[in-house]
């Protein structure tokens, strides 16, 4: 299957760069598994990305997240299947989420493939080009969980 792996965030703000690292890892691992993968590393999600979504069978978005107290971050990461969501928080091009891009692709008459968002809780968003050990550990767990889910959902063709 053809998969777009999109990591986004600012790699110069420590853990905000975790999306890039995770996306690069996933692109490699899924490629080794025989999937046809394409990697996209972005500072922010921008409308231009939506135009290409229909070329893929699966979209994987990788992002950092700030800690939340809504009980959903017990593992320090979240893996969510996402759907088009036209709600644009703050109407700001710099805070566009993947759901908004999916909605945009839908409005453009482009196909919207199944999509997954993996978000990893960051520890620090200070200046720096390396993620913290805590964030890396969460990322590795998130990756493991995702690959297990992926293997079950899309069994490798033998």
């Amino acid at each position: 299957m053809k998969i777009l792996v999109c990591g986004y965030g600012n790699p110069f703000r420590t853990d905000d760069g975790v999306g890039h690292i995770l996306a690069e890892d996933l692109e490699r691992v899924l490629g080794e598994r025989g999937e046809e993968t394409e990697l996209s590393l972005e500072h922010q999600l921008l409308p231009e990305l939506a135009e290409a979504f229909s070329r893929f069978d699966l979209l994987i978005f990788c992002d950092a997240r700030v800690p939340s107290d809504d009980g959903g971050d017990v593992e320090g990461y979240r893996i969510e299947e996402i759907a088009p969501d036209p709600h644009l928080e703050g109407l700001n091009i710099h805070s566009v989420g993947p759901g908004w891009l999916l909605a945009l692709a839908q409005s453009l008459g482009r196909g919207v493939p199944p999509s997954v968002l993996i978000s990893v809780e960051g520890e620090s968003f200070d200046f720096g080009d390396e993620i913290t050990p805590e964030c890396r550990e969460r990322m590795e767990r998130a990756e493991k969980t995702f690959l297990k889910w992926f293997g079950e959902k899309y069994p490798a063709k033998s």
Binding site: E48, P86, L108
Partner: peptide, 22 residues
């Protein structure tokens, strides 16, 4: 009144703009 609204009501124009910028 933004590019998403444009995509809904004027999809050809929105596609033109998005692909041109790309």
């Amino acid at each position: 009144r933004n590019v998403a609204g444009l995509a809904q009501d004027f999809p050809d124009l929105a596609v033109a703009g998005i692909t041109m910028r790309k």
